[in-house]
Each structure stands twice: as structure tokens, then as C-alpha cells.
């Protein structure tokens, strides 16, 4: 028998997972929220999501080509970015603006810094923030959920739907307003496409935890910090954790591998920071929701956190190793 022996260094086995599998799992985890967005906001939501994903893929493909880098469009990470950006947009946004946001996210925030894993802020959040700054009117044009059912196809063309206030905006305007928690769980409120249906987001989060794609540390600590801080500061903690972009941000955006600290203690510090900043912006800032900015600020602090909070290598003792 002919043997051609391959010599390479150990280990000679691999767990079998690859980057594409991880991205596929994230897409699966995002699908309940995707379904919820179509149910709540109609086919218009699907249109925005498709445009975002398609333009993200195109931007990824073209930028790798232009930069003469190995093609990475197959790793599916652009699909995740496109979906996450769409989830952060209102249903009424003009489609060209959605596409513009996607291109900014992929080209400026991701590829210009070297591509997957090299970006220092979450690309989808950069896309959202650029759109918020560039088109404040269309980015704050919320429609009520299920309204599309009265005119199932006609809503596709509508851009200037009736504005509806989000719960956070209501609370910012009048801190004594009482908001029922139950509808919030099912996403019965105005808001961005993918952020409103809490149950769908939590379902996706559980999937990611079970598949060991993310550790529950960041979402649990982030949401917990928001709960405790709003409660301590006299706001309504239940409404706060169920509204705005918190669930979407804590489960899917703050956990972005590239932009959160890599070790456990670093993740803890980072998640607490996200929670504190979110509450500060919500209660004392001029924006109704602070999730995007909180996460982006903590993204920027991540290298610093990693420098300061690092695991203690085995056998490096603060004291000394003693035998008896």
C-alpha cells in the first residue's frame, strides 16, 4: 500500500466548527425576530431587511475585490450585519437610505479596518448611528404594529406613515406614565423592526447560548444592570428592560465577538459599562434610547478593558504557592 505521510504539528484533530457555522447559527437565532418583524410591520419590513442584507453582501463582495483581498463573502458575516442593521431601522425608512446604511456599515466600519474580526466598533451600530445623524426625520418615523393589516399591500409604498411614540419616548416626555408590560413582550409597540418582540429575541438568545455561540454573561449582566439601575433611580425597571433596543442590543450586538472583550472578567466589566451608559443616556440624556451609543462607547473601550482586566495565568499567584 502506498503511503504519502503528511507531517504537521499537533494537534491533529479539530472540533470541526468553522466561522461560517457560527454565522449560520447567528442567522438562525435572528430568524424568530425576523418573523416577528414581518408579522408586526408587514411586507415593508421584509423589503427593508432584504435590501439591507443584499447591499451588505454586495458591499462586502465589492470591497474585497477592490482591495484585492481574499473573498470572504461566503462566511455569511455580511448577512448578519445586514440583518442587524435592518432590525435597527423603522419600517418606513426609504429603501435607498437602508442600503446606504448597509454600505457604510460594511465598507467604513468593517472592511476599512481589515474585515471580519478587525473592526473596533459594531458595523451595524455604526450604520444606524450614521443614518440617525444623516436622516433624523425618517429614522424617527415609527408606525404602530399590525397597522399594515388594514392595507396589506398599499403600505409598501408609504414612507410618511403616521408617527407613533415609542414607550421610551413617552416615558422621557412624562415620567409618570404607566406602561403595560404584557404587550411589550410580544412587540406591540412602535419601534425598530427587530427590537420590539422581546420573546422572539430571547428565544434567539437562548439558542445562541445552547449552541455555545455566546456565553450568557454579557446579555444577563447588561440587562441586569439596566434593571437594577433604573430601579435604584426611581424609574420603571420592567418597562425599561422590555423597551427600546435593549434586548436586541444586549443579546445580539453587545456580544459581537470582534468588539467585546475576549476574556470572562473583561466581558463582565464591559457588560456593566453598557448597562450604566444605557441608563444614564435614557434617564439624563436627550435621546430616548441609549443602547446604540452605550454599546459603541464600550466597543471603543474594549482594548482598554482587555489591557486592564486579564485572566491570571495558571501558577502566577498574587501570594505564593504553598505546599503545606
Amino acid at each position: 500500500m502506498e503511503h504519502t505521510l503528511l507531517v504537521s504539528s499537533s494537534p491533529h484533530v479539530h472540533c470541526g466548527m468553522n466561522t461560517r457555522d457560527i454565522m449560520r447559527d447567528v442567522i438562525i437565532a435572528l430568524s424568530p425576530a425576523l418573523a416577528a418583524s414581518v408579522w408586526l410591520f408587514g411586507l415593508r419590513a421584509l423589503a427593508v431587511e432584504l435590501v439591507c442584507v443584499a447591499s451588505a453582501l454586495a458591499a462586502e463582495y465589492l470591497s474585497r475585490r477592490v482591495m484585492k483581498r481574499p473573498q470572504t463573502v461566503g462566511d455569511l458575516s455580511a448577512v448578519v450585519t445586514g440583518l442587524l442593521l435592518a432590525f435597527n431601522l423603522p419600517a418606513t425608512i426609504p429603501l435607498w437610505q437602508a442600503a446606504f446604511g448597509s454600505v457604510v456599515a460594511i465598507v467604513v466600519a468593517k472592511q476599512m479596518f481589515g474585515g471580519l474580526g478587525q473592526n473596533f466598533v459594531n458595523p451595524a451600530l455604526v450604520g444606524r448611528i450614521v443614518l440617525m445623524g444623516s436622516f433624523p426625520e425618517t429614522m424617527n418615523n415609527w408606525v404602530d404594529p399590525l397597522k399594515w393589516l388594514s392595507d396589506p399591500l398599499g403600505h409598501l409604498g408609504t414612507v410618511d406613515a403616521v408617527s407613533s411614540a415609542t414607550p421610551l419616548a413617552q416615558m422621557a416626555a412624562d415620567s409618570t406614565v404607566e406602561i403595560d408590560a404584557m404587550p411589550l413582550l410580544f412587540g406591540m409597540r412602535g419601534g425598530s423592526l427587530g427590537e420590539t418582540c422581546v420573546i422572539a429575541l430571547v428565544l434567539g438568545g437562548l439558542y445562541l447560548v445552547i449552541r455555545r455561540i455566546i456565553s450568557p454573561m454579557i446579555p444577563v449582566v447588561y440587562i441586569g444592570t439596566v434593571f437594577v439601575m433604573t430601579w435604584l433611580l426611581g424609574a420603571d425597571p420592567v418597562t425599561h428592560i422590555l423597551s427600546g433596543g435593549l434586548m436586541l442590543g444586549a443579546i445580539f450586538m453587545a456580544t459581537d465577538y470582534a468588539t467585546c472583550p475576549i476574556n470572562r472578567s473583561g466581558k463582565l466589566v464591559y457588560a456593566i459599562g453598557c448597562g450604566l451608559l444605557t441608563v444614564l443616556i435614557r434617564l439624563y440624556g436627550s435621546l430616548p434610547d441609549g443602547v446604540s451609543f452605550a454599546i459603541v462607547i464600550m466597543n471603543i473601550l474594549t482594548p482598554l478593558i482587555e489591557r486592564v482586566v486579564r485572566p491570571r495565568p495558571f501558577g502566577n499567584k498574587r501570594g505564593k504557592a504553598v505546599a503545606k
Binding site: G114, L116, Q118, Y257, N263, R264, E306, R310, P311, R312
Partner: peptide, 28 residues
């Protein structure tokens, strides 16, 4: 059982950090 899969870019998932029994930071 011998598949040589080309390396792609580090996505900073932290699996190596979690797996290291010596609590080192392989990425760093």
C-alpha cells in the same frame, strides 16, 4: 481524518481563551 483546512482571519470568538487550561490569552 486528515483535512488541511486553510486558516482564515481571527474572529475573536474567544474559544481559545476559554479552552486554555493555563488561563493564557492565545490571541494576545
Amino acid at each position: 481524518d486528515v483535512q488541511e483546512i486553510p486558516a482564515s482571519t481571527c474572529i475573536r470568538c474567544g474559544r481559545c481563551v476559554d479552552a486554555c487550561p493555563m488561563s493564557l490569552l492565545p490571541t494576545s
